[in-house]
């Protein structure tokens, strides 16, 4: 498996978290929670693996990572129904139209950090 992608994502996470921590006078991060969309192209297991190897020597070294998976949601442009979508099946359950309006599932967000 190619972990490069997840490593680059985690490096951005570490940069943002470190900056936020400094602004909030924290010196050590204990917990970090991320919200990752199902369609973001990021594998949670790889993200965890990349996290463990990238946090060494950073403020996050002893922190635990929490990943909340955001399931994909589409909104039908015809009948306004919101419905869960899968990669291979994006048909509106009500009118059977193909849904191109994805309103949730591409998230790559940092949610909260906890630290001292």
């Amino acid at each position: 498996m190619n972990l490069m992608h997840e490593v680059s994502i985690i490096q951005s996470v570490i940069d943002i978290v470190t900056k936020q921590a400094l602004e909030n006078n924290l010196t050590k991060i204990n917990n970090l929670s991320l919200r990752i969309g199902e369609l973001s192209g990021v594998m949670p297991e790889s993200l965890e693996f990349a996290f463990d190897s990238c946090i060494k020597g950073t403020m996050l070294e002893e922190s635990t990572l929490n990943i909340e998976i955001v399931s994909a949601l589409g909104e039908c442009k015809d009948c306004n129904l919101e419905f869960p979508i899968e990669h291979f099946n994006k048909l509106c359950p009500s009118c059977n139209k193909f849904c191109t309006n994805i309103i949730r599932g591409y998230e790559l967000n940092i949610n909260t950090i906890e630290g001292d």
Binding site: S12, N30, N109, T112, I113, E114, D116
Partner: peptide, 15 residues
């Protein structure tokens, strides 16, 4: 310990 709500897009720096 304090909890901080960050809510930042991870790709923000890229953007």
């Amino acid at each position: 310990m304090s909890e901080i709500k960050v809510v930042a897009n991870i790709l923000h720096t890229n953007e």
